[in-house]
Nucleic acid binder design. Structure first.
Lengths: 242, 242
DNA sequence: TGACATATTCGCGTTACGCATATAAGTAAA
DNA sequence: TTTACTTATATGCGTAACGCGAATATGTCA
């Protein structure tokens, strides 16, 4: 490799003298669809890896922060606004892209059901359930979608991170509308974890956390006893760090 | 900003046509020193920010992965090998460096006491205790060291991440030699969390985890009953994801 | 009015943990 | 040799969290 001097960051180093990696952001768009954790993917039409499925992404512009680049990709490539966005991890293997050296900062984007449907209707993305380990993207026809580059590793890390955080953070609420039932919240947890949970224990735990505020309203369109609607209150504890 | 076409990642995009950010790695080197969580910092001799203290870092070469770049900086700038290294977070605010656009991938590096001392002896770095919120770097003379760029934010995130993970991951052992007493392990936890812990409860918790293997050996050089030495066994549960 | 489905609550056994206290095992000095 | 001292290690108990089965509540619909 090029010999980078010890005081590279200490003064008069000229980075233009060295070949520079490109930097992109990639979005892992996740939502709950039909009770399963699902991801939104774009089909690559051009080489490299034409025909494979990839995370929506884009280059980071010179005058744009990483968060801003992620928000721009969400808006321009997926057609969504206001989803929960948080940085996930950076991937920088030398050969992760065969054409050129690209370092990507992956972001987690959590969508409500209506946002998933809107994105699919907009036609840029397809939806696939995440199953197995490592996480495979299973299409509507139950066939796995072939993924481009290292995007399966990114998807797997995203799912595992979500699983690790769902139960002490407020991430679950990013999948839900402002008003939701405890059953809907439990459905989110179960879809993310891929395992059923005990209902009374889940209720107690969520209510004891003190985050939920009862609205007094009840769901309608139920052919049985309607459940109470809750909102996420402002008194959230600081989430544990990552 | 430059208008980056929608199919930037889909084919014939020429990234050389656009100005590209530089990419560095920065290392948050942490160790336990005199019972306090401490960081290793380098004094900047050249502008920008000459005289301030900074994380050791370096540019990512075109043919070098992020992890490899972090290991290289650890070796070349700090003079250490074999520390626990893990990626922390990427920082990409446009103005984080006044001279040029630099995106940095921050790494957490955990050192044993002897490694801290070796690095300090090598003379490239100084050691400072981390205290307060946001984390301030307190020098030997109890005066806070002025930090360069956004490095205080990076240090704070590193410390908070460590606090969040210490209790369900095996990170604590990276601060300890291969054989250690339960008291030493508790000292690590207390230094990281900045709070005393209940001794019997801590013992029980650690032993019930099943990670520790008793060696039958005892510490020496104690002027009282010597404690048993343990090692970290192979049967660790998969750590929770971040 | 009664069957049905789901929401919501209750009670109980188990486990994790904070905490005070006891016991064990070294060193060092009387 | 004994005793004080210090820290390691073990034990007992009260409390809080939680899994789980079962009971009760409240809607819709025939």
């Amino acid at each position: 490799m090029a010999d980078i001097s010890d005081d590279a960051l200490l003064g008069d180093y000229d980075p233009a003298a060295y070949a520079r990696p490109s930097v992109t952001v990639d979005l892992v768009l996740l939502g709950i669809r039909r009770g399963r954790l699902s991801a939104l993917l774009m089909r690559r039409e051009q080489p490299p890896q034409a025909g494979r499925w990839a995370l929506p992404g884009g280059f980071v512009a010179i005058d744009e922060s990483l968060d801003a680049a992620a928000a721009r990709v969400l808006r321009d490539k997926v057609g969504l606004d206001g989803a929960h966005l948080e940085q996930l991890y950076s991937f920088g293997a030398v050969d992760r892209n065969p054409r050129m050296r690209i370092i990507t900062i992956a972001y987690l984007a959590l969508l409500r059901e209506e946002q998933v449907e809107a994105a699919v209707r907009a036609g840029q993305v397809a939806v696939a359930a995440l199953e197995g380990d490592p996480a495979a993207a299973i299409g509507e026809d139950r066939a796995p979608l072939p993924l481009a580059f290292d995007h399966q590793a990114i998807l797997t890390l995203a799912r595992d991170r979500l699983r690790g955080k769902i139960d002490y953070s407020d991430l679950a609420f990013a999948f839900l509308p402002p008003r939701f039932t405890l059953r809907a919240l439990q459905d989110v947890h179960e879809a993310v974890l891929g395992t059923p949970l005990n209902k009374p224990a889940f209720r107690r735990r969520m209510l004891d956390r003190g985050w939920l505020v009862a609205t007094g309203l009840r769901e309608d369109e139920a052919s049985h006893r309607p459940a109470e609607l809750f909102t996420l209150g402002g008194a959230r504890r600081p989430a544990r760090s990552q």
